[in-house]
Each structure stands twice: as C-alpha cells, then as structure tokens.
Simulated assay, not measured.
Amino acid sequence: MNPIKHVPRPPQIASPMLAGLLYAIIWLALGALLLSLLLHFGNLKESSLPIFATFIHGVSAFAGGLTSGKRSGMKGWYQGGLLGLLYGVTILLIGFLAADAGFSLHTAILLGITLLLGAFGGVIGVNLKK
C-alpha cells in the first residue's frame, strides 16, 4: 500500500461576506443547540429565552463580522457592519416566513445589535490579520 503524498485542501470560500455569513450561521446553530440543552436539562425557564436568543444572535453576528473582517483585510467596520445587517435581515426574514413574526421594537433592537456587534467583530478581525 502506497502512502498518500498529497491531500488536496477543500476549496475556500472566496467572498469574505459569504464566509462570514456561514460562520455566523454555524455559531447560531451551536448557540441554539446549547440553549435547547439548557432548556431541557437545566433549570432555564422559557420566559427568559428571548434574552438568551438575542445574546446568541449578537455573538453570531460578532463571529461572522470577525471572519468577514479577517478575510477582507481592510474596512473591517464596513465589512462587519454589512455582515451584521445581512445576518439580521436573514434571521428576520426566516422568522417572518416560518413563524409569521411581524416587525416591532424587538426587530429594530435585533437589527441594531447585529449591526453594531458585526461591525465591532469586523474591526477586531482586520486587526487579527497582522
């Protein structure tokens, strides 16, 4: 048996925005899984879910902005902020189509949080590239 001399790397996502959105969705999935496990096995009440869900969305937007800023290498606040806005609109669109959720003050707060934390993540991500 001959050893493998060259293993090809999987293709990387060329667009920083698309890579950031993918990372944000992965962080969202992990956060939702953790939150559901805490709800099922812990003593977490359902009435506190909106606060934790907003926190998870913020962390996801930050991680996506960090990835987007790091991959773009410049204009981190712009890349991250745009990613946060895109992530927030995607989440709101999914909520509107799946659960018939309307627009309210909570919607504006969620968009603001994802925009700001995405921009902050983008700034940090550009500075991590060095």
Rank of each mutant, 00 (worst) to 15 (best):
A53V: 13
G81I: 02
S104N: 15
H6M: 09
A14H: 08
L82E: 00
G69P: 04
G58K: 01
S60G: 13
F55P: 10
I25F: 11
P8S: 08
L128D: 13
A24I: 00
G31D: 06
T54V: 05
G125D: 05
H6W: 10
A99G: 08
Y87H: 02
G122F: 04
G102W: 01
L44K: 07
L66E: 09
L28R: 02
V59N: 03
F120M: 14
E46G: 15
A53H: 09
L28S: 12
Q79Y: 07
G80P: 09
I91Q: 01
A63M: 14
G64K: 01
G102C: 06
G118D: 04
A19N: 05
L85Q: 06
L105A: 13
L44T: 04
G122H: 07
P50R: 15
G81D: 04
R71T: 00
S68C: 12
S60Q: 03
A98W: 07
L35P: 00
H40T: 15
T90Q: 11
S48E: 07
T67D: 00
L33F: 14
L38R: 11
I4L: 15
L44V: 10
S72A: 15
L33N: 04
I56L: 12
H106C: 02
A119E: 02
W77H: 05
A108K: 12
P50G: 12
V59Q: 07
L105R: 07
T67M: 05
A53P: 04
T67A: 02
I113H: 04
S47Q: 11
P50F: 13
Q12P: 02
G65S: 12
F41C: 12
L34E: 03
L35K: 09
Y87L: 02
K129H: 11
G118Q: 08
V7C: 12
H57Y: 14
S15W: 10
A101L: 12
S60T: 01
A19D: 03
Q79E: 03
V123I: 15
A101K: 12
V89K: 10
L93A: 15
A63K: 03
L97C: 08
A61E: 02
H57L: 12
F96K: 08
I25Q: 01
L115A: 03
I25V: 09
A24K: 00
A61M: 03
G118H: 06
K129C: 06
L49S: 03
A53S: 15
L30K: 06
G69T: 01
Y78W: 12
V7R: 15
E46H: 08
N127F: 15
L115N: 00
L18P: 00
L37A: 14
A29G: 01
R71P: 01
T114W: 08
A108N: 10
G80Q: 09
K75S: 11
I113A: 07
T107A: 13
G80R: 07
L105I: 11
L86K: 05
T67I: 02
F52N: 01
S47L: 09
F120R: 08
P11R: 14
A53C: 11
M17P: 11
V89N: 13
I109C: 00
L110C: 07
N127W: 15
G95I: 06
D100S: 10
A29M: 10
R9Y: 08
H106E: 09
A29C: 05
L116K: 02
I56V: 13
P10E: 15
L82S: 04
H106Q: 12
L34Y: 10
I56D: 05
L93R: 06
L37Q: 07
L111D: 08
G58E: 02
A99V: 08
A99W: 13
L39I: 04
F103P: 10
S47I: 06
L44E: 03
